[in-house]
């Protein structure tokens, strides 16, 4: 029994029964398939998170974001600047208590270098309803190249708990057809 010592003292020499052996082999091979699937997707898949990130400070990051906002703001929406940056440019999104700042306006099927960092605590970038989810840290600037392939209005929900105003932290991204 499993609650008594093994009946045979030399239990490690017993032959293993066929059903068990087959399952061990199948499970091991499946593990290998899942391992290589991730590597395969780096070559063949379109959705791979970038490895590009930089150390930064809230001040330095905030200044870069502000420069972009000053240059490319096109209008105001509910008190937020709406920024329409050039195609292919560096776009900065600021996460802070309890806002995603500013509102971004991107063009469909164009690539942008999206930078994200936090000014204070941890935040979670959750692009909805697309459902892309990233962790945002203070002091780290994540850079990823995105290519919005749908037009419309998208929400950026904060999905990392960041204090009492967490549930009010919603941002916005517009994706517009190429003019």
């Amino acid at each position: 029994m499993a609650i008594s010592p093994p009946l045979q003292k030399i239990w490690w020499n017993e032959p293993v029964e066929k059903t068990e052996l087959i399952w061990i082999v199948v499970a091991f091979v499946w593990g290998l398939i899942m391992f290589f699937m991730m590597i395969y997707w780096h070559g063949a898949g379109q959705q791979n998170l970038s490895n590009e990130a930089y150390r930064t400070t809230p001040e330095a990051y905030g200044a870069k974001a502000q420069a972009m906002i000053d240059q490319y703001t096109v209008r105001d929406e509910a008190g937020y600047p709406v920024v329409h940056p050039p195609v292919g440019s560096d776009v900065y999104l600021v996460a802070r208590l309890w806002q995603w700042w500013p509102i971004l306006e991107l063009e469909k099927d164009q690539e942008y270098r999206l930078h994200i960092s936090s000014m204070d605590w941890l935040h979670g970038f959750s692009l909805q309803p697309v459902n892309i989810n990233l962790q945002v840290h203070p002091g780290y600037e994540m850079v990823l190249t995105v290519k919005p392939n749908q037009a419309g209005q998208f929400g950026v929900v904060c999905n990392e708990y960041c204090g009492i105003g967490h549930h009010m932290m919603v941002g916005r991204i517009h994706v517009v057809q190429k003019p």
Binding site: A78, Y80, P129
Partner: peptide, 17 residues
Amino acid sequence: LGVARRHWDITFADAPL
């Protein structure tokens, strides 16, 4: 469907956006 964990109000009633 994208619903966030650890979230008090997924209607975002008090959120500016």
